[in-house]
């Protein structure tokens, strides 16, 4: 133990000489939703749009067409190696997917410069919280390492219906601390100049969210969906 550590711990113990009590915190706040799925989805769309994300409702038959349209005719885009590629449009001469291996130091990963040069990134997501309009990425194979959803200027994020929950506590239970977590609520923004909101500073300036009806059962409570947390 370093000298500084020993001394700080000694100071802390001395400061607590009066033995303050530490009751178990009361968790009387809402921890599971009582809303039907439709209402939760509606809320998610509303909150995402309020924070300037573009939202699209698709099913397994229409998702590739939507992504094709969002990418535009000419596009070099990156995907994580675990992404379900049946969601994607066929590559063409002008539209090419680039698969990132998921490990920055191993072959098959894009450098930061390469990521800066691509037009977009397409990923899945772990869970989305309707009440706050927040998408959670947990660096799973279909979400990729953090850099690929950060450096490209356009993020197309697929949110399967089975991963949508209403409340923050429900969402937090579906991600785990073993890998990095990134919570995204709309595109990057600043209000630093006279409090005027400006969309897009350093993160992706364009965020497209595809809510994908994947045919799974509604999650309702927590921990039920296919993407449940692995803590």
């Amino acid at each position: 133990m370093t000298e500084a550590k020993a001394e700080i711990l000694r100071r802390v113990r001395a400061a607590l000489a009066d033995g303050p009590s530490a009751p178990e915190p009361a968790r009387e706040y809402r921890r599971s939703s009582d809303k039907p799925l439709d209402a939760v989805l509606e809320m998610l769309v509303d909150r995402l749009e309020d924070y300037k994300a573009a939202v699209h409702r698709e099913d397994l038959g229409s998702v590739a067409g939507r992504i094709e349209q969002l990418l535009g005719r000419s596009s070099r885009y990156v995907i994580p190696n675990g992404l379900d590629q049946s969601w994607l449009p066929r590559d063409s001469a002008a539209r090419v997917r680039m698969v990132d291996s998921g490990h920055a130091r191993k072959a098959g990963s894009l450098t930061v410069r390469e990521l800066d040069a691509v037009d977009a990134v397409v990923t899945a997501s772990s869970v989305s919280c309707a009440e706050t309009g927040t998408i959670f990425l947990n660096a799973r194979p279909d979400e990729g390492r953090r850099a690929i959803t950060l450096v490209p200027d356009h993020h197309i994020c697929v949110v399967p219906v089975s991963t949508v929950v209403e409340l923050v506590p429900e969402a937090m239970r579906r991600v785990g601390p073993e890998r990095p977590i990134t919570m995204i609520s709309g595109p990057s923004a600043t209000s630093d100049i006279e409090l005027q909101r400006v969309e897009g500073v350093h993160g992706p300036r364009r965020l497209d969210v595809i809510i994908l009806d994947d045919g799974d059962e509604a999650p309702g409570g927590d921990g039920a969906g296919g993407a449940s947390g692995d803590r």
Binding site: R47, Y51, G102, H103, A104, R105, K106, S109, C129, E131, T132, G133, T134, A139, R145, R146, A147, P177, E178, R179, P180, I181, T182, M183, I184, S185, G186, P187, S188, A189, G203
Partner: peptide, 17 residues
């Protein structure tokens, strides 16, 4: 309702960050 970005990390992740 939520700030645009929140990042959480727990120690080192191989090949990421």
């Amino acid at each position: 309702r939520m700030n645009p970005y929140t990042s959480l990390w727990s120690g080192r992740t191989e090949g990421d960050g």
